[in-house]
């Protein structure tokens, strides 16, 4: 199944949660903001949301400094 990941189509396994996808991509959930179907997802919900075919996911990685 495919989702739109950061603007590009990407094949992902069925029944995978957002947290599992982040883990596969070695993305630290403490340093990324995740937008799922146009809503920003709170960190504690990342493991609850199972991705569907056609979903849109934006993962914004943050670096320190300010």
């Amino acid at each position: 199944m495919d989702i739109i990941f950061n603007g590009t189509s990407r094949a992902i396994p069925h029944s995978i949660t957002i947290q599992e996808l982040l883990d596969q991509l070695h993305l630290d959930c403490r340093q990324v903001v995740v937008e799922h179907n146009r809503s920003i997802v709170a960190r504690q919900r990342l493991a609850d949301i199972v991705l569907d075919h056609g979903d849109t996911l934006e993962v914004i990685h943050f670096v320190g400094g300010g």
């Binding site: 340093q31 990324v32 903001v33 920003i40 709170a42 960190r43 943050f62 320190g64 300010g66």
Partner: peptide, 17 residues
Amino acid sequence: AFDLAEQKVMLIETFAA
């Protein structure tokens, strides 16, 4: 306007929710 990446993410998630 935080310094640490983890704090930036925490703020955005909390305010957006």
